[in-house]
Simulated assay, not measured.
Amino acid sequence: MNAATPSRGEAEAAELARLLPESDEDEWELPPGRHLHHKDVLMQQIDRDTEPVHQAPAALAPRRRLLRPAVLMPAAAGLAVAGILAATLPSGGSDGVRDMGAGQGATPGAAVTLDRIANASLKSGTRPVKASQFVYVRSLVRGNDGELNGKVKLGAPYTEQTWFSQDPAPVTDIGMTRESGKGAQMPGQDVPIEASAVDGSEDSGAIPEGPERPTYNWLASLPTDPDALLKKLYAETRVIEGQETKAQAVFDKIGGLLGATIMPPENAAALYKAVAKLPGVTEVPDAVDAAGRHGIGITLDESSYTTREEWIFDKKSFTYLGSRGYMTKNHQPGGRPGREGNPEVLYGSSAVLERAVVDQRGMEPAGESG
């Protein structure tokens, strides 16, 4: 490949940019400060830099953090990961905690689709991942390129590659990310994802496998009974008080696992069956990922929230395709609730193009090293 030949990622992103229609989504606005809030929530999925909901006792060790540019948020671990957006309750809303037993779970249509997705995942033939290996994910991403004045404007698409360590022991070297394409923030650079303790702490900052670093080995340890799994997720998932319900926090947590990991078929099936038990989960008959692929969407519908995320699955194979995030309302003082005939605006989207296991960080499935 000579210097004039674009990389695979650049070519993919350029082709998608050519095919996607122009939009006027930059006319929409997020409430003041929401861009920074969404960024903070995404970063929680990989380093939990933000403050906890309930203040921890002073005797606890300082929080770990990841060392990488603040503007860099791997989409595979954030956008499709865990949800592209955190929901926001309007002023005077509920306390943000929904009883696990409230409601009747997903709508009938969504429940049937999730059961089909679960059954399809059991036939995936996924092989165990060794502790010495890395989970590789290549995604096409379109994010919000608006300025911090609140404007929502979809940026140019770009390709993102991520490598995540599967070592079960506490590590500071979590993995690496690489971006290419017009919309990339740091094109062509291999940026490590590393953990560190808070300044002044004697803690190394190393993060063990677990909810904040979901390895194949940890995912395999989760209950395969949907009720037991949901109970565990409710107990271990943090809620941002006043900004999300417990059900939505769990929904976003599971969404993060779907886009950025490889897990045993039995555990994947259990996750989908657990989602079917969440109140407010509905089906979207036609949803489109960042690559333009049409599929069936699964979402958690909270009418009082400003944002909503969809997971997208192939209509025939029921494999995971990607995700989309929408702004559903505008809660700014004097702001518009939405234009007639278009009550939602696309905030960002992703498409998982390839998922594999490799032996080295920076290695692509074809065997090329970065």
Rank of each mutant, 00 (worst) to 15 (best):
S7D: 08
R8W: 08
A13Y: 02
E25V: 15
G33V: 03
D49N: 06
V53C: 07
V53E: 13
A58Q: 04
A61P: 07
R68G: 06
A76K: 03
V81P: 06
L89N: 00
D95C: 00
V112L: 03
R116Y: 03
L122C: 02
V137F: 03
S139M: 12
N144I: 04
E147G: 14
L148H: 09
F164R: 14
D167M: 10
D173P: 11
D173H: 12
G181F: 13
G183Y: 14
Q185W: 12
Q189N: 12
Q189H: 13
D190N: 14
D190V: 11
V191S: 04
V191H: 10
S196F: 11
P208A: 07
Y216K: 02
L222A: 01
T224H: 00
D225R: 02
K232W: 00
K232G: 09
Y234A: 08
Q243D: 08
G255N: 10
L258E: 11
P264S: 03
A269W: 10
K277L: 14
T282Y: 04
P285W: 12
D289M: 10
I298R: 02
W311Y: 15
I312K: 09
T319H: 14
R324C: 06
N330S: 12
G335I: 00
R336M: 09
P337K: 05
E340C: 05
N342T: 12
P343M: 01
V345C: 04
E354P: 02
Q360A: 03
M363R: 05
